[in-house]
């Protein structure tokens, strides 16, 4: 049985494709986008994270940790996982509030599907289904294929939400099992893409072209981050590319929001777009209008 590393299974997802959906977030992503809404999904292994708002500073985690020295009596403050953490999970098990969490659970495809099936009545009612997201699904292709096959066998509609960064061969195989692609384009300018996401966009855009040849139901999603990818040149370049890909049915402009700032902090990583504010509805509409001039079906929001 295929198994994979799952970050979270989110039910009543209503912004990841049509209808009421269950989104399966996989762990691990090759990109490190500055604005990533789920930075805890980036690392391809398990991680201990501490949700500071739930921590009551009881110190149980330190008491049970085999790596860390016991704290001085009366020690307070939220504990971060020690650098030499062995991921034994003792602190997670001991934490009374659930503040200490293991990000990433190894699950078999059958386990995931059992969870996905729970909301089947709502998929049927709403035309929804499952969305495999990440992280980056292409990092766990065998697992993704197993999930998609099982969904297909059970009559559950499938969507894959991808950054497009990964093996083209795997992407095209996955395409055979996928009803809908949510395909992200972050930036068109190669240099900017590299600096803001940590990787080249060349493969991503080539993969999109290849996918567009074989798959007829692609929604391109662009997270609109003011000052980074909302310039006329960026929007026009994206629109010009998308216009040429026949499998693209619509473009969704997603408004950047800064709710992930505290997550970066929790992971001890810098949040490098803290000075950027969310685009106004007017900015969103302007960008959508601009792209519509290329004959695209552009929507704002999920």
């Amino acid at each position: 049985m295929e198994s994979g590393l799952v970050l979270n299974i989110q039910r009543y997802s209503i912004h990841d494709g049509p209808g009421i959906r269950t989104t399966v977030f996989l762990k691990g992503c090759p990109l490190t986008c500055w604005w990533c809404p789920n930075p805890e999904s980036q690392c391809a292994g398990r991680e201990v994270i501490v949700v500071e708002t739930r921590c009551v500073r009881c110190g149980r985690c330190r008491e049970v940790c085999p790596v860390e020295q016991l704290p001085a009596p009366g020690g307070d403050g939220v504990r971060a996982a020690p650098a030499a953490c062995t991921l034994c999970g003792a602190c997670v098990e001991a934490c009374p509030t659930g503040a200490a969490q293991m990000a990433g659970t190894a699950m078999t495809a059958a386990e995931v599907i059992a969870e996905v099936r729970r909301d089947r009545i709502f998929y049927d009612e709403s035309g929804g289904g499952v969305t495999i997201s990440g992280g980056e699904p292409l990092m766990q292709p065998a697992f993704v294929k197993a999930l998609l096959k099982a969904c297909r066998a059970g009559g559950i509609a499938t969507a894959v939400d991808t950054s497009g960064y990964g093996s083209r061969e795997q992407l095209l195989e996955i395409a055979k099992l996928t009803d809908l692609f949510l395909y992200d384009i972050k930036l068109m300018d190669p240099a900017s893409h590299a600096s803001y996401t940590g990787a080249s966009n060349e493969g991503i855009l080539d993969n999109l072209r290849a996918l567009g040849q074989v798959h007829s139901n692609i929604w391109v999603r662009i997270p609109l981050v003011p000052g980074i990818n909302d310039s006329p040149a960026e929007l026009d370049a994206a629109a010009e590319l998308i216009r040429q890909i026949k499998g693209v049915q619509q473009v969704n402009l997603l408004a950047y929001h800064d709710t992930a700032a505290h997550k970066f902090e929790r992971l001890g990583r810098p949040y490098r777009v803290s000075d950027i504010s969310a685009p106004t509805p007017w900015q969103m509409d302007q960008a959508a209008e601009r792209m519509r001039k290329f004959g695209l079906n552009v929507k704002t929001g999920g």
């Binding site: 209503i14 209808g19 009421i20 009545i121 049927d124 009612e125 709403s126 929001g301």
Partner: peptide
């Protein structure tokens, strides 16, 4: 915010219908 647009309303309608099927 969950009900601000038509899509949100429709999804809530599906939630209700699903519950009533049960």
């Amino acid at each position: 915010s969950l009900l601000a647009d038509q899509a949100g309303l429709e999804k809530l309608a599906h939630l209700v219908r699903g519950y009533f099927k049960m």
